[in-house]
Design a protein around this nucleic acid. Structure first.
Lengths: 121, 121, 121, 121
DNA sequence: GTGGTCTAGACCACG
DNA sequence: GTGGTCTAGACCACC
């Protein structure tokens, strides 16, 4: 469920943070369920445990998980976080719309592409 | 017209590249018009001339400008480049739409925000 | 009366130690009264008995309890301990006052907040 | 100006974070002034550069500094941050006052100690 | 020169 | 077994 794209220019730990966030907000990872242990995930992805550690710390800082020494890392989800994530996306949509307008893309073309995902069955 | 945000995490040269591209595709900088000289811009922004040089090289590589030895750098604009930029934005719009759908944002809410820029007069 | 906060970053045994100390100095747990048995408390809090054991050992080491083999752990209270706890708090108050002064908080504002608990009825 | 206390149980990076915050809120380190470079400070304190790196990242995250690749880390201070720090201290003062009251320290004794720093000339 | 990321390997505290 | 911290050393991008 968690993977790394080495062609991606972003640091590995950041990719993991984003991926786990995704799994949480989509409900794939349920609240209070346990995340893979630092060492296991490191082995599975063949990367250094420190890198996973860093990703998990970041997730905890952002409010997506909490860690208990000697037990593991656990999913911590709240409606507020979901709301926050939604707002992030909507804000990006507005900015993108503005950029589209400024570069000369017609309203019709833009909304058509934006809605695409919703049209597919 | 060109500025640097030191709190932006992206490298300075990249910020400049993006900013100039923006000015070109929006038509603020006209084809064949001259870009600020490396030295002048460096002084104006109080940064190292090497950094400007790098940004200009990048712009040339991307096809947004050309340099004439001993004279300076000039805007090079083509329909293809504009088309490319437009497609970039439309692709982002599609991806954003998909993310919105997956996180549970309704089609109405999403398109409303996406269209926002077009509604304002 | 004893609870665990898993989001608290301190180890569980330390939380228990502190909590029991609090109950003792406040007089809720009376001298020579019996503490919950290791097994019972472990079950009640659904944690490992070893963790309770460690907390009780720590309390004994600090002079807040004594254990009788085959009978259990009992509250051991003395004036000196209370005095020690009081001095701890007063020392913290002095340090806090110094920090407040250095950061630029006025004497009035600081004492007003410090006295707050005493003003309420 | 920055030192480590190896007897302190807290991690080194955390001690550094706190120490630098202190220097900033007290005005010793001025806004936009440069912090010691990661490598220099590491050498000076004879610890690993990674540890300094982590402390600086934390400071940036907390809003006390910003880093510019290839240039260094710089102090970033705002009134809000100072206000936040003051409120932290006042909140601690209130909690301490409550604890003092509950353990049976008289109001007079407590305020006397709390005010101590302000009385000295 | 600067910061940022990553690996490898160690040690500690906790349960 | 778990997470947390630290060291040593490397490599990269940026200025």
């Amino acid at each position: 469920m968690i993977y790394i794209d080495y062609k991606d220019r972003r640091p590995i730990y950041e990719q993991i943070v984003e991926r786990v966030q995704e799994l949480i907000v989509k409900g794939v990872l349920e609240p209070d369920s346990q995340l893979p242990s630092v060492r296991n995930l490191a082995m599975e992805l063949s990367i250094n445990p420190n890198t996973i550690q860093r990703a998990y710390s970041e997730l905890e800082r952002l409010g997506f998980s909490y860690s208990v020494k000697g037990r593991g890392n656990f999913v911590l989800f709240s409606e507020e976080l979901l709301e926050m994530k939604k707002n992030e996306i909507l804000k990006k949509a507005e900015e993108l719309g503005e950029a589209a307008k400024e570069i000369g893309i017609s309203r019709e073309i833009f909304t058509e592409h934006a809605k695409k995902a919703y049209e597919e069955e």
